[in-house]
Amino acid sequence: MRSCFAFPALLATALCAAVPAGAQSLLEYVGECVPFARQASGIQIYGDAWTWWDQARGRYQRGQVPKVGAVLAFSKSPQLRLGHVAVVSRIVEKRVLMITHANWSRFDGERGHAEQDVTLFDVSERGDWSLVKVWYRDRKGLGSSIYPAHGFIYGTPARDAPASVRKARPSAELTSRQPDYVGSLIDAYAAR
């Protein structure tokens, strides 16, 4: 797969790898979470989702504090054999975020679709986003599973990053114009 972010002048074609032929929007994407997260965040990491955290070391800054446009790298687990990656679209409050990601919930029985402004709730004891619950369309609320996460990969190159690593440019479609903040809070705190 070629990198659409190799040349800033090609911003109009930045969605080429993630948006299927004929689609007008990143949100029409159907496929795996990794190509979607790469295109939505601008962070140029390849390979299974569970490898992103280690691959980011020395290339992109990483941490435990959410920032819009950052990628949350989920750990490999029995439920997520290949891990998962999602892009932060909104920060609602200290322990509640909205993410935009692909290949989580089913749409008409089919996985792979993109979802925008999905509730993510930090359930870790230390408030470090190492354990999270994710809104699941199939249940119309937060799922009952708790997923381990490594942390956030920011689109800013690490201090000693190779010159080829450029600052990421997240998609303008990460969030909607009027996300449901109240619904997100209700989803998070009602599921405690």
Rank of each mutant, 00 (worst) to 15 (best):
G69R: 02
D187H: 09
G143W: 07
E28C: 11
Q55K: 13
R139D: 14
V134A: 15
V71A: 04
T13I: 04
A191P: 02
L120C: 00
L142D: 01
E125M: 11
C33Y: 00
A40C: 01
R59M: 09
G183L: 06
R38D: 13
K67N: 01
A190S: 15
S124K: 03
P162K: 10
I99E: 00
S89R: 06
R192F: 02
A40W: 00
D138W: 09
G141Q: 06
G83Y: 05
D128K: 03
H84I: 01
V68P: 03
L174P: 02
S105D: 04
L11K: 15
Q24P: 03
S77T: 08
K94I: 06
A161N: 01
R126E: 11
R169G: 14
A172D: 15
S130W: 03
V65G: 09
G58F: 03
A172I: 13
D187W: 05
Q24D: 14
L27R: 01
C4K: 08
G112Q: 12
A86G: 03
R166V: 04
A102I: 12
R159F: 10
A114G: 14
A191D: 08
S3V: 11
G141L: 09
H101D: 06
A102Y: 01
V85C: 05
R169H: 11
R106K: 15
L72V: 13
A172G: 14
V123Q: 07
A23C: 07
R139M: 12
V19W: 06
W53S: 01
P66E: 00
W53P: 08
T13M: 14
V88C: 05
V34Q: 02
D138G: 03
G112F: 02
G42Q: 00
P20F: 11
H84M: 07
P66C: 05
I43D: 00
Q79R: 12
D187P: 02
R111N: 13
V123G: 11
S144V: 15
V123I: 09
V96E: 08
H150P: 06
F152L: 10
F7N: 10
L10E: 02
L11E: 10
W52F: 14
T100M: 06
K133P: 04
S145G: 06
R81T: 15
Q64E: 14
L174H: 01
Y154N: 00
F36D: 08
F5G: 09
P78V: 04
H150E: 03
K167S: 12
V96H: 10
R169Y: 10
R2N: 03
P20N: 10
Y181W: 09
W129M: 12
I45V: 09
P8T: 07
Y189P: 01
T100Q: 09
T175S: 15
P148T: 04
V182S: 10
T175E: 12
G69S: 06
A168C: 04
Q39K: 12
Q178H: 12
Y29M: 03
R177N: 12
A18H: 05
T51D: 05
G109M: 04
V165F: 08
L10W: 09
G109S: 04
A56K: 06
S145Y: 12
